[in-house]
């Protein structure tokens, strides 16, 4: 197992009688991207602030690279880069001056800081607007500048709170690309978001937050198996006069078959693609398409919470 960058155990935060976070356990290794997902108010940001030592946890222990954020916050903050939710900059300074100020606060030596700033700005594609005032920078550019700040610091752990919120598809794609670059550098990334499909694309593991607790944690296929109970999903496009749903439902291993808009959706206990194809052809239908569908995070999420609300 690779080096553990972050570990939190039994993390809780109470605001009066209300638990914003209760009993959260997290572990993150070098070069790993963990996505924290959940609706607004599920405790993601509070968890992040506790990890950074910006809020004191009511109970639980945190270890960031061997340091406790409460007792040694400076050591922790030196190792962690943070991109807050809707990050702000000083409008009276240029992009480069903003980063220079952060570099001075971070205590980086001058030459190293200048080189780091230029490299980071280039990496996020802001080198051309670096010396323009902040007022001319768009929301997407500000978000990228925030990421440049994390890059410049050269951290072990990058904590990104809703990095893609409010960005257009191209901008968020670029941002996620830079985040993949962080992973390639060996930086551990903790990403929080409520935009599920975008997060799915970059995360190694995801942790689903709900009412201050992590209700599900693992890789996306892993979660799918747990939520859907080991179900395989296939889709077929057929042409021909056949009653596909009842035809497939009769096959062994198939749980359920439904048709909608000419596409047949089959839920099965195992990989039954060969049987499906054979049955379709034997019934005289033309098989145009047969695919195995990976359930999306979105589907997992919805299915899980529907189940929850049903029982709760």
């Amino acid at each position: 197992m690779s080096e553990v960058v972050l570990s939190a155990k039994g993390l809780s935060k109470w605001y009066g009688p209300i638990a914003a976070v209760s009993g959260v356990d997290l572990e993150l290794h070098r070069g790993e991207i963990l996505g924290m997902l959940g609706p607004n108010g599920a405790g993601k940001t509070t968890t992040i602030l506790m990890l950074l030592g910006l809020t004191e946890p009511s109970s639980g222990t945190i270890d960031v690279g061997g340091f406790d954020p409460i007792r040694a916050p400076l050591e922790v903050k030196r190792r962690v880069g943070y991109l807050p939710d809707s990050v702000g900059f000083y409008d009276n300074l240029t992009a480069r001056q903003n980063l220079r100020y952060t570099a001075r606060l971070a205590g980086l030596p001058r030459e190293q800081a200048e080189a780091g700033i230029s490299a980071a700005l280039k990496r996020v594609g802001l080198d051309e607007v670096a010396d323009r005032g902040m007022r001319t920078l768009s929301h997407g550019m500000r978000q990228r500048l925030g990421l440049a700040e994390v890059l410049m610091k050269g951290v072990e752990l990058a904590v990104l709170d809703e990095p893609t919120s409010g960005l257009d598809p191209q901008a968020s794609f670029d941002l996620l690309d830079t985040i993949r670059g962080l992973k390639a550098d060996g930086t551990a990334v903790l990403l929080s978001s409520h935009l599920l499909d975008r997060v799915q694309a970059v995360c190694d593991r995801v942790a689903l937050f709900h009412r201050g607790k992590i209700v599900l944690e693992g890789t996306v296929p892993d979660l799918a198996r747990r939520v859907f109970g080991g179900v395989y999903i296939f889709e077929l496009d057929l042409e021909g006069d056949v009653d596909a749903p009842s035809l497939f439902a009769a096959l062994p291993g198939v749980r359920q078959a439904t048709a909608a808009d000419g596409t047949v959706r089959v839920l099965a206990d195992r990989d039954v693609r060969a049987e499906l194809a054979r049955a379709a052809v034997a019934a005289g239908a033309a098989l145009h398409r047969l695919v195995s569908v990976e359930p999306s995070l979105d589907a997992i999420y919805r299915h899980y919470f529907e189940g929850r609300h049903g029982t709760a």
């Binding site: 602030l49 950074l52 910006l54 916050p73 400076l74 050591e75 903050k77 030196r78 962690v80 880069g81 943070y82 807050p84 809707s86 990050v87 702000g88 900059f89 000083y90 409008d91 952060t102 606060l105 971070a106 205590g107 925030g146 700040e149």
Partner: peptide, 14 residues
């Protein structure tokens, strides 16, 4: 109000 506080306090300073 400029939303710079959390960014600044995330730097290694008290």
């Amino acid at each position: 109000n400029r939303r710079t506080m959390s960014r600044i306090l995330a730097q290694p300073i008290y």
